[in-house]
Design a protein around this nucleic acid. Structure first.
Lengths: 224, 224
DNA sequence: TGCCTTGCTTATCACTTGATAAGATCATAC
DNA sequence: GTATGATCTTATCAAGTGATAAGCAAGGCA
């Protein structure tokens, strides 16, 4: 049963990444100290430096793991959905359910806490995992005529993609605020929450996609 | 010309708040040390503790200043605009122009770096300055029939307001990413930038409001 | 069996952080 | 003109940070 030494090492490494992922996502790069991670892993702090060159390298591997997981999950999910609206809905529901942490903190960290080279790497990871799949969906929607062309409102597929991500991020943030903010009992999405504290994101996802596609206005846009 | 001592003190205090505001907004609560603020103010670090009880109290006053400024600016601006669409547009344009810093970082700080009591206070400030004006606009739009009722998509005025704020925040963030991310030359809104580096936010504001009101879809929503 | 690399621990570094204590300076009230 | 108190400085604290050095223990090969 004794795991070979290299296996054991890989497992430790994976455990560190898993633990650090949770903490970084919840608290941000700066607020999570190497000692905190080590303690949560049941090892001493210098042990981290055996597996990773420094804190930034660990953060980078965490981000690699997050983005890889998301990209493959989204790829499978979107491929199995026939129409554009269904794909958007699945994408949104997945993001709401599996990213209870604030996505935008990732960007804060990327922009302010890391070296330029790490910034570039992580940005590229994020782009291929989160943005590109959405850009493809919106691009196809425009080509098929389901969506307004870029000419009408100036919404390119990339801008559309970023906007949906922003809306998703906002939903996540306000759901958290509803817990923290003492006087936000119904703030932004206090829908039914499962008994284990797990939220039911389905209505929220439908709502976001509906608004993004059809807007808030009861009347069609004035011809312009 | 010698300013009276109490005047001088008030000016120093105001200068500290002004300086700290910029730094907190740009870098976040944790990343800005009291020494950094003091140095930028041209005073020594312990001097801050003469004007403010501690770092958190300073941050709280900074937030008070930010929110008060925003609330009064929005109040004047929205009151002078007759129709709903115009108000939304003015609101959006103002937010884009005067908040080049990431709004969402404010929330990260609020949720994770501050004591519970401070969280409550700041959340209330933010709500009355940013959220309530928007909720009023959307609420009136629903009552007048210009906007879909809450029953159709489940978009209450509050959710609508939070969504627009999320879209605005997203625009700001992706504009910053376009600078930091090496390979994001047209990411999310690389419109014309003035020669002094000042962006022209007008098209961006129009775009956001158009999408929020009329959606991305070329066809009306399927009856449901 | 014995050496040697791997995966860790203990001990410690230099540095930054928020915060306090004690003293200096100077406008002002008396 | 001196006492006073507000405004700031210099000096310093304890705690926490990322990171390194050196040693230890055990798996794995000779």
């Amino acid at each position: 049963m004794a795991a070979s030494r290299s296996n054991q090492s890989q497992e430790t490494r994976a455990m560190i990444i898993r633990t650090a992922k949770e903490m970084f996502m919840k608290l941000g790069y700066r607020a999570v100290s190497t000692r905190l991670i080590a303690e949560a892993c049941g090892v001493t702090q210098p042990a981290l430096y055996h597996h990773f060159k420094d804190k930034q390298a660990l953060y980078l591997d965490v981000m690699r793991s997050v983005c890889d997981g998301t990209r493959s999950a989204l790829g499978r999910m979107i491929g199995s959905e026939p129409d554009m609206r269904g794909r958007l809905y699945r994408f949104t529901a997945y993001m709401l359910a599996s990213h209870p942490e604030d996505l935008s903190r990732m960007f804060h960290d990327i922009r302010h806490e890391l070296a330029a080279e790490s910034q570039r790497i992580i940005y590229e990871l994020w782009r291929s995992a989160y943005l590109v799949p959405l850009i493809d969906i919106f691009g196809e929607g425009q080509r098929s005529g389901e969506l307004r062309s870029s000419a009408q409102f100036g919404m390119t597929p990339e801008k559309s993609a970023r906007m949906l991500l922003g809306m998703i991020n906002q939903s996540l943030a306000s759901a958290q605020t509803a817990i923290a903010g003492a006087s936000a009992p119904q703030g932004g999405g206090a829908d039914a929450a499962g008994e284990n504290g797990q939220k039911d994101w389905e209505p929220q996802a439908h709502m976001l996609v509906n608004v993004l596609l059809y807007g808030l206005s009861a009347a069609p846009p004035p011809s312009e």
